[in-house]
């Protein structure tokens, strides 16, 4: 029997799709009994969404105003305490999970498995190293708690259809005052979320300016796609950091990925290689992006992208 605790990821009102992907990962663990924990100042809506995921046995809510803006240092002692009854503690491999879970693992005195991409057994997992250029199988001691982060792109989101019970719990753990939330500047956009979008259009350094990067937004809007960017484009200030795709940005697995003016450094490729179909548009026919692209088009993006947009207009 594996008693699995998944830490829900949310923005205060909406459950993130990465949590549904963690549920799918957990279902691959033999004898999984899945509980989702929701930490929030007002967890009801998020808890209801978590309880509706197929395969979830139970949702526990921990209500506290201090969880309105989650901080790893504040959350970790609570999660570690709550983890007492479980064999596995999972979180998504997002900036939230990467910040929180190692702190939880260290408090529990156990190692962590980062970026689980497949479940080979209750204590045996595969994960990528070297920006995905090698895959390791790791085995954890079965007499210790297992803490892991889940590589969202490797798992489908668990479908709806569940009706788990929702229980409010209180956890007695110290609240450190040494770490304080100040502010969050989040871009608000009507476009699909990059992490969970079915279609993504990404731009690279070849766009040449922030103004030109608008071409990417226009094409994305035509396709109903999310917008991504290479590290070079973000470093150059053409696009904000939250759009970065790759080893140190977001790892995504859309149905369609369109890379425009992106040469395809291995650090970028690792973020997209689970995409179902990759389209590359680049003026350099030797660019490494063409090695992973299903469809490549060599040419000037400033002519191709408007033509593509026009071709899509019906």
């Amino acid at each position: 029997m594996s008693k699995i605790l998944i830490i829900a990821e949310h923005d205060g009102s909406k459950l993130s799709q990465v949590t549904a992907r963690c549920v799918t990962c957990a279902k691959h663990i033999t004898g999984a009994e899945i509980t989702i924990a929701v930490f929030a100042s007002d967890p009801l809506a998020v808890a209801a969404a978590a309880a509706a995921l197929a395969g979830v046995g139970k949702v526990v809510t921990i209500t506290d105003p201090k969880h309105a803006h989650p901080l790893a240092a504040v959350l970790a002692p609570v999660v570690a305490k709550l983890a007492g009854d479980y064999t596995h503690v999972l979180g998504a491999s997002t900036t939230f999970g990467k910040d929180l879970m190692p702190r939880v693992a260290a408090l529990l005195g156990v190692a962590q498995i980062s970026d689980v991409m497949s479940v080979e057994g209750p204590y045996r997992y595969k994960r990528p190293i070297y920006a995905g250029n090698a895959i390791v199988t790791v085995e954890a001691a079965s007499d210790r708690k297992l803490v892991a982060t889940v590589r969202s792109a490797s798992f489908e989101a668990a479908p709806a259809g569940g009706s788990a019970s929702i229980t409010a719990v209180s956890v007695d753990a110290p609240t450190p005052a040494h770490t304080r939330f100040v502010s969050l500047s989040a871009a608000t956009s009507d476009r699909p979320d990059l992490q969970s979008a079915q279609r993504v259009v990404s731009g690279g350094r070849a766009l040449g300016s922030k103004e030109n990067f608008q071409l990417i937004f226009n094409l994305a809007d035509k396709l109903g796609a999310a917008v991504g960017a290479s590290r070079a484009a973000v470093d150059a200030g053409y696009a904000p950091n939250e759009l970065q795709v790759g080893q140190t940005g977001k790892i995504i697995a859309p149905e369609l990925y369109v890379a425009i003016g992106i040469s395809g450094a291995i650090q970028h490729l690792t973020g997209i290689k689970d995409a179902r179909t990759i389209v590359a548009i680049n003026k350099d026919g030797e660019a490494p992006i063409f090695e992973v692209a299903d469809f490549g088009l060599v040419g000037d993006l400033f002519q191709i992208v408007p033509a593509l947009e026009k071709g899509l207009a019906k």
Binding site: T94, F96, H178, T179, R180, V182, S183, L184, Q195, E242
Partner: peptide, 12 residues
């Protein structure tokens, strides 16, 4: 740099 954008925190 967080997934949602930029978060500012203060630590002792």
């Amino acid at each position: 740099e967080v997934d949602a954008g930029l978060e500012t925190i203060e630590v002792d």
